[in-house]
Design a protein around this nucleic acid. Structure first.
Lengths: 283, 283
DNA sequence: CGATCGTTTGACGGTGCTCAATCACCGTGG
DNA sequence: CCACGGTGATTGAGCACCGTCAAACGATCG
């Protein structure tokens, strides 16, 4: 993770060919680099023109309730977004990585609705709100990418709710791992070998469980042959069964521990449109 | 709200009269009306120019997985946004009302990440995606309002996660009611007298509980003197205590049923880094 | 190498999920 | 008008699951 900064300089598909419309592509064009970042591509040298901020591991970049001055785009490192109760208990809403936005939930109220803590040494691009407006109107492409990214966040929160909604700790953990795997794949990394950047506590909070339950669930999944777990390194041995396990809605194992309990139907690709399922309506 | 549909046919937005560039106060302007809608104000007569769509109670306006063609702004009526599992079980992500957006989670992937079902007869404004782009670039105010509204949705999802994260069904229900009350207040309606537009099942799904637990929790809160419940009509008798109860992080009543158990400390702002967590949830 | 933190495992108790029956409320049709 | 099914809400009993407390184990870093 520390080596991530090394790449900051490389990867030069230069020329701001990204901004089709108005960007006359002067020297650098910060939003071109940001655009690339938002789309998951690699960074540009020109990115330095934007304020880059280092965030040491464990420190809070955003504070819940604080007045919003900037939003951030993660350049390197992973964060957790949290809601902290006044008694100190913190709820982990999501884990964010490179290309994700931080602080966007503050646009409506002017105050951050959640905090953000770096799970490891990280670097972010700071976007002061007024400059954000300027950037949006300077580049339609950037504007669209931004909106799309916010939309993706919305999607993510839905996925998180889905993970939390499962009955049975095993299933929640399975869902979490499937989501993590999917994200890694989208990021171009291995979908099988996961290095967890967060502790059991954070996972537990994110899934609405006790951290001991995370350990136990990992144990169950390992015993079921779905995983191999070594501290924070997780190897998915049987992704198909893990996904099937993640689909379990009701109580889990009707037999052994994690014996692929609720055998889901043969996994037919969900239709894109108009799923018949009689539950569409409800009166 | 039934008379609203009459105008469905009008919307002859030939010529770009939609985009009135800064609302120079001509007769009116569609995005001005939408803007007002997004901000929670009252409607304008001129709003009829926008495509208005009727959604009968119980029908799905959006289908999960379907290709995105429009996003919607609710004009009247309430919706639930749902994620449906292939076995028919549905997870209620959120409840949306007048002025809320529907379908915005599809912008990133092009497919709706969640469905939307009308809880009662409703009416929505349909915004085809291409026209949305046009509107955004025609009016900065509209564009900003839109972004702010999406941000508010993000906030909402965080609140929902907070509600689900509580240990103890009572606390979850309390949080749900507090949120509902707050929203009603923002909408200018009574914060004490709530008429639930959704069934116990939907609430249960939203909170990650069994629907029987909703009944029991209501019962507890009533016995504690916090509420008065008559079917779908809920009267909040003691909002302060309800809010205190909603702040409970750990196990609930250490004594009687809902005896304002965990008395919350004086609400000091939370520290910034590394707070030990202890709470968890359990469905 | 020792201190601190994170992870794992165990035992116990409680909460809520399951299953099931009852009641209240509606719109329908006899 | 009342009987009839259908849906939603409430209440009860039993037991599995997970949260809590506690202790051992392991990792990491100074």
């Amino acid at each position: 993770m520390t080596e991530a900064y090394a790449h900051t300089l490389t990867h030069g598909h230069e020329e701001g060919s990204w901004f089709v419309e108005r960007e006359e592509g002067g020297a650098w064009s910060a939003q071109g680099a940001l655009l690339r970042l938002l789309h998951g591509g690699n960074l540009l040298p020109g990115l330095h023109a934007l304020p880059l901020q280092h965030v040491p591991r464990g420190t809070a970049l955003l504070h819940e309730g604080a007045a919003a001055r900037c939003v951030y785009v993660i350049q390197a490192g992973d964060f957790k977004t949290v809601k902290t109760a006044e008694d100190g208990y913190e709820l982990v809403l999501d884990f964010a990585g490179r290309g994700d936005l931080l602080g966007f939930d503050a646009l409506a109220s002017g105050h951050h609705a959640s905090g953000a803590v770096a799970l490891e040494d990280a670097a972010v691009h700071a976007l002061p709100l007024h400059e954000l407006e300027a950037l949006r109107h300077a580049s339609r492409a950037f504007d669209s990418a931004l909106l799309a990214t916010v939309s993706r966040q919305l999607e993510r929160m839905g996925d998180a709710a889905w993970a939390m909604s499962a009955v049975g700790a095993d299933v929640r953990v399975a869902r979490f791992l499937v989501q993590l795997s999917t994200r890694m794949l989208e990021r171009g990394q291995s979908a099988r070998l996961l290095r967890l950047r967060m502790g059991r506590r954070d996972i537990a909070s994110h899934l609405g469980l006790a951290h001991e339950s995370i350990s136990r669930s990992f144990g169950s999944l390992v015993e079921g042959g779905l995983l191999r777990v070594d501290n924070r390194d997780v190897e998915i041995l049987d992704l198909a069964r893990l996904q099937r396990h993640a689909r379990c809605t009701r109580g889990l194992a009707d037999e052994g521990p994690v014996r692929t309990s609720c055998d889901a139907p043969p996994l037919q690709a969900a239709a894109l449109v108009h799923r018949p399922l009689g539950a569409a309506v409800q009166v």
